[in-house]
Design a protein around this nucleic acid. Sequence first.
DNA 1: CCTATTGAAGTAACCGGTTACATTAAATCA
DNA 2: TGATTTAATGTAACCGGTTACTTCAATAGG
Lengths: 324, 324
Amino acid sequence: MATISRYMNRNAPVSQEAGERISQVMMDLNYTPHAAARHLATRRTQTIGIVVHNIHTDFFPPLLSGVEQVVSENQYNLLVATYKASETKNQPPLGPHNTDGMLVFADCLSDEQLTQMCIIKFPLVLLYRTPPPYLKIPFITIENKAATCKLIDHLIEAHDRRSIVFLRGPRGQEDSNWREQGYISSLEAHGIPVRSDLMLDGEFRGPSAYLSIKNLIAKNKSCFDAVFAGNDDAAMGVLTALQEAGLRVPEDVSVVGFDDSRLTPFLNPPMTTVRAPTDEVGRVATRQLFNLLQEIPVEQEILLPTEIILRRSCGCVHELVPAL
Amino acid sequence: MATISRYMNRNAPVSQEAGERISQVMMDLNYTPHAAARHLATRRTQTIGIVVHNIHTDFFPPLLSGVEQVVSENQYNLLVATYKASETKNQPPLGPHNTDGMLVFADCLSDEQLTQMCIIKFPLVLLYRTPPPYLKIPFITIENKAATCKLIDHLIEAHDRRSIVFLRGPRGQEDSNWREQGYISSLEAHGIPVRSDLMLDGEFRGPSAYLSIKNLIAKNKSCFDAVFAGNDDAAMGVLTALQEAGLRVPEDVSVVGFDDSRLTPFLNPPMTTVRAPTDEVGRVATRQLFNLLQEIPVEQEILLPTEIILRRSCGCVHELVPAL
DNA sequence: CCTATTGAAGTAACCGGTTACATTAAATCA
DNA sequence: TGATTTAATGTAACCGGTTACTTCAATAGG
């Protein structure tokens, strides 16, 4: 038995002959080692987990895809769970009991839950959020504020927009706050007053954004000339609401998003947005996590750059054909 | 120890007092049971797996999302792996050793691999494929042929298209074959000859579709007046190629897709396509798998209906605003 | 030639739960 | 009241591997 184990793990010498017999018998019996037994004995699950809010918005696929890529390169398994601490009293479905480490998206886990996991030294990497100040957890974020600021600058300077609606993301999500800061600082830099009646909920989702814009239009159709949608998903909802109201994009209203998700160049009109390297976030974060697992020192903080992408929805002439 | 186990699994009476002590201590110690130990003892992993080709195309998110929903309703874990038997010699990353059952997308696993798993009675449900005739594995498919046929009928009858390009999906994927059958039978029903020079590779992916159309245009710009793209992803590639060549959609060329993925109504022009209940496939399949796990008899074969959705890309007037 | 080292394989404890079986006390029954 | 059932708990084997420790033979070193 021990020899077999040593053969399979190649962690001690095994005679040629024994090796051949083992591999022969393994073939004959169609043997695969029982993962649970191995996990139990080694205390390693060869599995990492990722906790996200949901899977079906355009935002997650590239993230998951990046994660999955690195995970399979490392011959690990990937457990995917949807969970949001603020919406349930259940324990998180993933943790030390079934994974070796975890990627945590934004506010899926509460500060207390993170603290618990830190106490037991459970390897974590945070995506799109910073840890509470008393915890040392590596995290990956993207440049939100500067990009948003530039985008708003562009609306103001290039397209002479002054009444720019800002759609917030979900409360408690840092990206949303930074984008708000960028919005405000751009307005202030241009001496434009920040109007709270133009700052609405969007929740980074189409339906919610749609409703916000629809309500705004119901109150006063011409009180705004541009919309920063929060993200691309919300931007789609904005387009719908504007179209319903007979407002033209970009002639009457400029619309800009965030993420540069795969479909933005195909929208009508093609959407001006901020390119965020979502798949790269997934890859980098997963590599960080694997480093943690091997106790290789990791950078505490990684900030990935973003870049504004001008297309037609802000008012720019845009003759480029969508890239694939 | 046994009492604790019984308390946690509630499968034998435990005194009130003992129960309280246990739960108290569990809180104090911040105890979570070790999944691997449990798996080893019970021979159940409380985990199901899904094998797909990749995650990042628009097709998979709704599928995964549907699966994940049912999985978490059942308090199970979900292992996600990308794998394609035809592209590697490695063993599949998922199987009896780490899951209780598996969902298998299309041709991710080979017939031999399926056979192996059947021999050991490993619960499987197939997505978008039928099992080889000698295996009894429940499967979920969608109505491909009739829908494609109707869509081609529509191009011919409503828009007077005669030279309709057909972009194939990946070889070995049944959906693609059925769609081809639908295409052919519609042409035949209208007495239009089936031209092999109009049947090109698309692989259900944008870049591939783009190249096929680009090549075709290079040969003869006006040899076709419509494109059935195979799926929506490919349709996006088609749009790009046409746009580059200065061909207008739908005036010069009608373009239609398949799937009705989330973005199709937002494309420019909004895409005529076939609505496939992808998330429902995920849910239904997962429910089937859970039935198998509990040895509840399941339907061997489930065929979900599809429905054609007319928008502007085929030439129909389309005033509806995209729904969210 | 004797000892130290190395290669290969065996032995058994251990990982952390589950569960069949045994035990004991309390409750029910005739 | 004694016999039987039921509730609650204890005991220990077991799930299927890993690995520290041991054994033994072959080889190298002095």
